[in-house]
Amino acid sequence: MPANFDALASAIEQSEKDLLRRWIAALTAAGATRSGQTSDKDLKDACGRFLNELRNAIKNGAGEDISSEQWQNAREVLEEISTARALRGYSPVETALFVFSLKEPLFDLLRQTLAREERLADVLVASGGLLDRLGLFTTEVYQKSREEVIKRQQDELLELSTPVIQLWDKILALPLIGTLDSARTQTVMENLLQMIVDAEAEIAIIDITGVPAVDTLVAQHLIKTVAAARLMGADCIISGIRPQIAQTIVHLGLDLQVVSKATMADALSLALKKTGQKVERIAARG
């Protein structure tokens, strides 16, 4: 097998420039630059580096197994390319094309170089198998990077959707939006408790205008949050209970064990009163 790869490496070495040009043409035709998202120069660099590492690997005696030490540098180039593509929103097919579109120009080259030699068929099969494995490797890396992106977005969303706002001296507001699952409740609770300490808050207004449905699990989460806040010395007020939510709460038989107000404004005025504060209208001037 290494003999077949040697033929491949020397073919690449002999006409590297020409091969590079035809590979890039094939990639561009297949839309790899994605109308400017990857610059021509970046693409050329990446292709050049990969060809170089491919040749080096074979020179160093690399075999079929692309997970071996000798393939390390070539793998790193592919990893870099696949990760960049995953982050830029390329599809897995577009990512795999990077390696697969090298096949045609490379096979043409081998056919020319080894035209009258018996081993042509063997070299083609060995090279095809090698490119297939390297191509699959790019999709594997792509998949992993996408999963990381999604995980990070989920984490960001968890944080994003649970801001605690200082509304007034000693008064915090916690607007809840979306589904209150157990993971989010945990984050909400931690953020709220921390803010209660930091702001020396006495009242926390939990607004559920953005919560689509209150079922027994959501209720349990709310009750736990309220109880934890109470242990930290802050009372909670729940606001934003829409009429349809009020009805389901009653039918379910839920007791939220907390004062509730229809709107955030009502809740704020109660909170001001409880903390001994007052907002006054300045007498109209002129």
Partner: peptide, 26 residues
């Protein structure tokens, strides 16, 4: 929610069946 809305249920009826379904699903 999608099907309750598509058949023209009121918001209150939608919320009731959604909440009930959520309980039994869990």
């Amino acid at each position: 929610r999608f099907h309750a809305d598509a058949m023209g249920m009121s918001l209150i009826d939608q919320t009731k069946i959604i909440t009930a379904a959520s309980e039994i699903a869990r």
